[in-house]
Amino acid sequence: MALTPQEIARVANLARLELRPDETERVLTQLNGFFTLVDQMDAVNTDGVEPLAHPAAVLGDVALRLRDDIASEPNQREASQVSAPAVERGLFLVPRVIE
């Protein structure tokens, strides 16, 4: 399969990336090269095989650990906003969000 520039544009937009025309060209070539590699996967018969989402699941079922419902985090706003690009009155500022 080969990607089209339109698909690259769609994916870039989904990922909120902006590719210069020359980048689009390069990425297109590289991704197409990459997907010829990926298409080797078609050769493997995976009928009835469960996907392995968590490595430990090879040994048996893994279960999510649950913590008790206790609120113990202090206010850490100041330390957490040290690296924030734009903050006012404790709020992160962004270009207006329109609905």
């Binding site: 206790i70 609120a71 206010n75 706003r77 404790g90």
Partner: peptide, 15 residues
């Protein structure tokens, strides 16, 4: 483990 209480100062109930 941050609190869910309503009406706190902005971004003070966040970890």
């Amino acid at each position: 483990r941050a609190s869910t209480s309503f009406g706190a100062e902005p971004n003070t109930n966040a970890s």
